[in-house]
């Protein structure tokens, strides 16, 4: 089993898709400081413009970082006068990237990493079917449950470790960048715990998505079947169900994955999905994954390999 996992990991890293994604992640890490700097400054500018517009239009002010934005009396009627007074009243936003805000980078990037994990999982077994490698492998290790588990451990484990390590490295790359701007405040033990938890949850969901892609490609005997089926289910069917049948939301994969990755609504009634805590979402996602993998393993054990 160990030898099989080792061989599968080596083969995975030799795949073109894996190498390409590795290069993309490496490049992404290198260019992260300037891109993050620009993105945060741009966000600050957009937020201030929005606050200014709300002030000029006499709309209720937004709360930013716990502070309600100032406004001016409705009695000021002249648009020019309102613009001038709002311009003076609304303070400039600080566009500096603070290390404590790393979560705002990891969350959206996490979605991309999860999709990438799904693709890697589907491709790892789909390409083996298409190239006809599985019959060859099964004449060397005929115990199909072992083959199933070894390949799963190799691909999902690799994605889990790679995603977790990459997030750590990204944080390390951005740390001196933030330190140089004196923007490392609020990064104590609580922040470390919260950020570490977020990174681990992203890595776990990416590994889960990898396992889903793997299971679908194993049953569908091809990468395209898994990618088409998986993405159509999540992006089309679940979107329709989520928006038209609200009571189903606590049972949908995407909604639960969002709750789990965000990890900030535990026990709270006003979360993304009413009635779903982070723990409940994790349990549900794990149960779905276990059922899918069991079905895939049974199908793989019983079906003819031609």
């Amino acid at each position: 089993m160990t030898a099989l996992v080792e061989v599968e990991v080596r083969r995975l890293w030799a795949r073109r898709l894996t190498r390409t994604l590795g290069i993309v992640l490496l490049v992404g890490m290198v260019v992260a400081p300037p891109v993050v700097d620009r993105a945060f400054r741009e966000r600050a500018r957009i937020e201030r413009d929005a606050d200014l517009e709300r002030c000029i239009q006499a709309q209720p002010p937004k709360v930013r970082d716990g502070v309600t934005m100032p406004t001016i009396p409705d009695t000021v009627r002249s648009p020019a006068e309102r613009a001038a007074r709002c311009e003076r009243a609304i303070p400039p936003r600080d566009g500096t990237f603070h290390l404590r805000e790393i979560g705002e980078i990891l969350r959206p990037l996490g979605a991309l990493l999860i999709i990438a994990g799904f693709m890697v999982g589907a491709s790892a077994i789909g390409a083996d079917w298409q190239a006809g490698f599985l019959p060859t492998l099964l004449t060397w290790e005929g115990r199909r449950t072992r083959v199933f588990l070894a390949k799963l451990v190799a691909v999902a484990g690799t994605v889990l470790v790679a995603v977790a390590v990459w997030q750590v490295l990204l944080t390390l790359v951005l740390t001196p960048f933030a330190a140089a701007r004196d923007a490392t405040d609020g990064t104590g033990a609580a922040w470390l715990r919260e950020t570490g938890g977020l990174g681990l949850r992203v890595a776990a969901v990416a590994a889960g998505a990898t396992a889903v892609g793997y299971a679908l490609a194993l049953v569908g005997r091809g990468t395209a079947a898994a990618l088409g089926g998986g993405l159509a289910y999540v992006l089309v069917l679940e979107s329709v169900l989520s928006s038209n049948f609200t009571p189903l939301r606590p049972w949908l994969v995407l909604d639960n994955a969002i709750v789990f990755v965000k990890g900030q609504f535990e026990g709270g009634p006003g979360g993304d999905v009413p009635g779903r805590t982070v723990v409940a979402s994790a349990v549900l996602l794990a149960a779905y994954l276990a059922v899918l993998l069991s079905v895939a393993a049974i199908v793989f054990r019983r079906r003819d390999v031609t």
């Binding site: 083969r11 030799a14 073109r16 190239a131 006809g132 490698f133 060859t136 004449t139």
Partner: peptide
């Protein structure tokens, strides 16, 4: 065994 054409890993 050899089943038809042996499928191995093309990049290796």
């Amino acid at each position: 065994s050899l089943i038809e054409t042996q499928a191995l890993f093309p990049a290796f």
